[in-house]
């Protein structure tokens, strides 16, 4: 599967992801910079991404944990998600994500 990731400089990258991976892990393992301080356990919000309009409603809704943590981000938008809470499945092949400023190290 592929994920299209736009980094905080606006550069677009096409990265590989496996089914069952968290999107955060795929981004991190591709070598792109993503702070993900808590390692994906929904505690830090430094894996915050924006999902493109075409994809936003294809994802399952935010959990209560995710909803709560998104309160902490620098710029919340309707398309805000924590990439450690997006579990990749075939239906998400080609998903477009933009890294938020919260992901900077």
């Amino acid at each position: 599967m592929r994920i299209s990731v736009t980094d905080t400089n606006g550069t677009q990258h096409d990265i590989e992801a496996k089914e069952g991976d968290k999107a955060m892990e795929a981004i991190r393992d591709s070598g792109l910079t993503i702070a993900a301080l808590c390692g994906g356990c929904c505690s830090c919000a430094t894996c915050h991404v924006y999902v493109s309009d075409d994809w936003a409603d294809k994802l399952p809704p935010r959990s209560e944990d995710e909803e709560a943590l998104l309160e902490l981000v620098a710029e919340l938008r309707p398309a805000s998600r924590l990439s450690c809470q997006i579990i990749m499945e075939p239906a998400f092949d080609g998903i477009e994500l933009e890294l938020s400023s919260d992901t900077n190290l």
């Binding site: 393992d29 070598g31 910079t33 390692g39 356990c41 190290l105």
Partner: peptide
């Protein structure tokens, strides 16, 4: 590398050693 997973997911084998890296060499 990050230490928190060492007593959690890493011990269970759910996280690889590479995934612990804080910043990639390229960065």
């Amino acid at each position: 590398y990050q230490r928190p997973p060492l007593s959690k997911a890493y011990l269970k084998g759910n996280v690889t050693r590479d995934a612990l890296q804080i910043a990639k060499p390229a960065l």
